[in-house]
Nucleic acid binder design. Structure first.
Lengths: 220, 220
DNA sequence: TAGATTGTTAATCGATTAACAATC
DNA sequence: TAGATTGTTAATCGATTAACAATC
């Protein structure tokens, strides 16, 4: 299956970077920006920014550029960031704990709604004001609160089962830190954070002494 | 600038996923695999795997498929994973500590060569047998040991300066967890890990109830 | 008005997929 | 030999870039 219309996924993946850059501009007190200036900051061409935005509407003024505050608001609106998204965090090892403590989520529309781990020794432990609960509780909480987003930070060997059960409980988008490809039913989004793979793709070039500036790679 | 020939970067970024999948196959005792079977496991088409591999040589046997052990060895060789890569880790907050403690690196050719932080209160603290050193020490160690890979886990506001100084010291590839786009000179590779941006790109679909299975996105 | 910059169309570029001869 | 699967070429698909009329 693949979505019926709408902007390409690459474009959707770039929007958050535009939003972030606009936030920084605002912090610097810059209220107006051209596609060129915005592009320079994030190593994206001006044409690409304009094209990307054109999928969603018209946001600029010829001869002037974009009102930073307004464009930011509009992109956040498009991304659904006017609401707060509760997220279930599964797997509270070192990484899970770091994620739980990270302030960058809360500030940007993401609320860690619960910490869950299957290790009984961890259950009850409090991190940043949140108490670690069992994985069974996760399934209950997801159902009860209608949570649709989850972050998986469990070992690779348990990731698939965790994903299966999360989806069963109602999760529709998963960000997985586990180094394994998940199989999920249609209707569920999965994205990965994979530092080892990224490092390995760079050692390829280092091993050959191939110099590069890889621009135009939002994320990756 | 952009590299003079060679396989496309997308292909290089998929190789580590192939390698990992082959490692899992080996663990399962599977010694032979077809492009179709391998592809099914990681949601990539058989054609893509064969095409990708063809940039580097011929590794399979018609009618048979690939010898898992041999192909894995060859991909690891291509990626430069026959050697161990020392990595400087900068920024030892919660995330940096989790990275320092992560065993997945060591197991896969990545050796954390040193922990560095600019906060004097942290210097001297020992994590997993490694002592946190000052950032000035990082510059010295990078030079002395010829380190070319670094992981940045500092706050966004200091990431650019850290990157500048790392590059000055000799770093040629950076994996950054800081939510900001780095400007680096030609000849330096930069990749990002950006969970907030990823989550925001998924809230786009959740907000619209657009169902999806996003395959063919190694990493993302 | 003149200069700047948008939104959009068309051209280009690059990546993925399909198809199949070669061959194990 | 018959069946399976590779490596590769050609076709397709999609994304990026260039260019420019519209217009602030």
């Amino acid at each position: 299956m693949d979505r019926m219309e709408g902007p390409p996924d690459v474009v959707v993946r770039r929007l958050p970077l535009y939003a972030r850059s606009l936030r920084y501009l605002l912090q610097e007190g810059i209220e107006s920006v051209s596609s060129q200036e915005l592009g320079d900051r994030i190593n994206v061409t001006a044409a690409q920014i304009r094209k990307d935005l054109s999928y969603f509407g018209e946001f600029g003024k010829q001869g002037i550029g974009y009102d930073v505050r307004k464009l930011l608001q509009q992109i956040e609106d498009i991304l659904g960031l006017t609401q707060e998204w509760p997220v279930a965090l599964i797997g509270i090892g070192h990484l899970g704990e770091a994620i739980a403590r990270y302030e960058g989520f809360r500030q940007q529309g993401i609320r860690i709604a619960g910490l869950f781990d299957s290790n009984p020794a961890k259950i009850g432990k409090v991190i940043d004001g949140m108490t670690i609960q069992s994985f069974e509780e996760a399934e209950r909480v997801i159902r009860e609160q209608g949570i649709r987003l989850a972050i998986i930070a469990v070992p690779a060997r348990s990731a698939q089962e965790v994903a299966d059960r999360l989806v069963m409980a109602g999760v529709r988008a998963i960000l997985s830190y586990a180094p394994t490809v998940l199989q999920v039913p249609e209707g569920v989004w999965v994205r990965y954070i994979d530092p080892v793979a990224i490092l390995h793709s760079m050692t390829y070039y280092l091993a050959r002494d191939i110099a590069g500036v890889r621009h135009n790679n939002p994320e990756t």
